[in-house]
Design a protein around this nucleic acid. Structure first.
Lengths: 268, 268
DNA sequence: TGCAATATGTTAGAATTGTAACAACTTGGG
DNA sequence: CCCAAGTTGTTACAATTCTAACATATTGCA
C-alpha cells in the first residue's frame, strides 16, 4: 500500500520532470515489472494526471499540484488520494461545470481566468480557434491558452508558487490595476452563506478580489462539495458574483439562499 | 516538396495543440501513410521540435516558434528551413554554448534569463535539483524552470507575444524596476563592433536593457553566426557585457576587438 | 520533355508493447 | 498467527509499431 503510494508519487514527479517517458524506462527506473507500471499509469490516467500513448506516458500539464482554490488539498495529501473515487467524481463534476461555463464566453470579449484545475478544464473546453482576449495569473491557464492561435493573452507576473502554479505580484502598483475585462471566472475553496467565499492561501485573495473588481460580470465556478466549507482566506461574498456555476448536488436551502441574494445559479 | 513543407508545418501545429499524438492518428488525420508520418517526425525530431515515443510524438515545449532574438527568423521562414543543415548546426552550437554557460551558475544565486532557444537550452542544462533563483520573461524559460523543484522563480508578466513566447510589460512602473540579480544571461540577433548588440523586435529591447542594468554580471550567449549581423533594435554595446559565450568560429579580428574592450570571451 | 532527385506507399518480417489470467507475494486487521 | 484483500510478477498470446528494402509517384531542373 505505502510502497505503491510512494512509487506513484515518484512516478508522477519523474514524468513531470521529463515531460514523457516510456514504459520500459519507467520499469527499469523503478525496478518493477512493466505490468506494474502500466497499472500505475492507468490510475494516473484515470485521474487525469498523465496521458497515455502506446509505449509511454505523457505529463498532462496543468492538472496536478493544484493544491489551491479548493479543499481538495486534503484529498490530495491523503495517502490514498489516488484511489479515492471522490476525486474522480469531483473531476467529472469540474469538467461538466467548466464545459457549461465555456458556453458563457462570447467571441472577441475580454475575460479574466483564475487559477485551479477547474480553470484548466475551462481552457480546454474553449474551441482551439475561438477568438478572445484572456487575462490570467497561473501557469496552467497560460500554457493551455498559449496553444490557441486566436487567443490574445495577458498574464500577471510575480513570484511563482510552484504548488499552485500561480503568480503572486507583490507590487500593488502593477498594471493589474489598469486591466479590465467583461467577465471573470473565479474558483474557490469554500462557499458559506455567512462566512463568504474563501480560498486556502492568502496570496491568492488579493488577485481574486482585484479581478472581481475589474470585471463587469463575475462568475464563480465551484463544484457542489465546496458549499458549506470554509477556507482560511475570505476574498468575496456570495452576492459579489453575478453567476454561480455548480453541479446539482446542492441542498434546496442553499439554492434558495443564492437566488435570494440576486445571483443567477446555473446547475449542471 | 511544397506539399511536405505544408504538411510538416500543419503537423507541428497539430502536435503542439494536442501536446502529443500517435502515429496512426496523424496518419489518418493527414491522409498519408504511417511511413510518411514517421519520416516527417524524424525530421521534426532531428530539429528538436518534437520528441518521439514508441507509437507517437510529443511536442517539445519551448523549442519552436522562437522567431526572436536571432536572425534565424530568416531561416525559419525559409521554405526549406527544416532541411537546412545549418539550422541543426546552429542548434548544436547553441546547445554547446548553453552547456558552457550553465557552468557559470553558482548555487543559490539569483539570475535573470532572457528569451530564445539558447535560453531554453540553458535551462535544460541546469541540473534538475540545482538550487537558485531565476527571473524570466518568456514562457519557455518559465515552463522549463517550473519543473525544477529547487528553483525559485519570478516572472514578469504582460502582453504575451506568441511568436516569441515572451511577455511585454507596457507599464514601466512595474516591479521589474525593483528586481536585481547577480548574473543575467542575454541572447541577441546581431553583434556588431560599431552598431552594437541588436535584436529583431522592439518590444524585447527594453526588458533586455533593464535586465542588464539590474545585474552585477552580464553574460551574452550568441552563436558565432550572429557576429557581424545587425537587427533593427539596439539594446546594448559589446562592452556592456562582462562575458560573451560563443562558439569558436570567430574571425581573429573580432576576437581581438572583443577582448580589447575588456570583455571576457569564452569559446566552446 | 525527360532525367535525376526526392517523396511516398507497400510489403513482410522483426521488435516492441498490450492484455488477460493466474500464481506468488505483502499487508493489515481480527 | 492467519486470512482476506490488495499488490506484484509471470506467462503466453494478441495487437501494434518499427525497420528496411523495394516499387511507384511526384517534383525540379536542364
Amino acid at each position: 500500500m505505502i510502497k505503491r503510494e510512494k512509487r506513484i508519487q515518484d512516478l508522477t514527479n519523474f514524468i513531470k520532470v521529463n515531460n514523457a517517458c516510456s514504459i520500459s524506462e519507467l520499469s527499469t527506473k523503478f525496478n518493477v515489472s512493466e505490468m506494474t507500471i502500466r497499472r500505475d499509469l492507468a490510475i494516473l490516467e484515470s485521474n487525469g494526471i498523465v496521458r497515455y500513448l502506446h509505449g509511454g506516458a505523457l505529463y498532462n500539464p496543468g492538472l496536478d499540484s493544484q493544491q489551491s482554490n479548493n479543499e481538495d488539498v486534503k484529498d490530495f495529501s491523503d495517502s490514498d488520494y489516488l484511489f479515492n473515487q471522490q476525486i474522480v467524481k469531483h473531476r467529472d463534476d469540474k469538467i461538466a461545470i467548466a464545459r457549461k461555463a465555456s458556453t458563457l464566453l462570447e467571441p472577441d470579449e475580454s475575460v479574466m481566468i483564475d487559477s485551479g484545475t477547474t480553470m484548466s478544464y475551462l481552457c480546454r473546453e474553449i474551441e482551439n480557434t475561438f477568438s478572445f482576449t484572456a487575462v490570467c495569473w497561473s501557469l496552467n491557464v497560460l500554457v493551455e491558452l498559449s496553444r490557441k492561435p486566436n487567443c490574445k493573452l495577458i498574464s500577471y507576473g510575480g513570484y511563482f508558487h510552484s504548488q499552485t502554479k500561480m503568480f503572486e505580484n507583490p507590487y500593488p502598483s502593477d498594471f493589474m490595476k489598469y486591466t479590465r475585462a467583461s467577465k471573470v471566472f473565479i474558483s474557490a475553496g469554500g462557499v458559506h452563506p455567512q462566512l463568504g467565499v474563501t480560498c486556502p492561501l492568502s496570496y491568492e485573495s488579493e488577485t481574486k478580489r482585484k479581478a472581481i473588481e475589474s470585471s463587469k460580470t463575475s462568475i464563480l465556478l465551484v463544484d457542489a462539495s465546496k458549499f458549506g466549507k470554509v477556507c482560511p482566506t475570505h476574498f468575496a461574498n456570495i452576492e459579489d458574483f453575478d453567476i454561480i456555476v455548480t453541479n446539482d448536488h446542492l441542498e434546496e436551502s442553499m439554492k434558495q439562499e443564492i437566488v435570494a441574494r440576486g445571483v443567477r445559479l446555473i446547475l449542471v
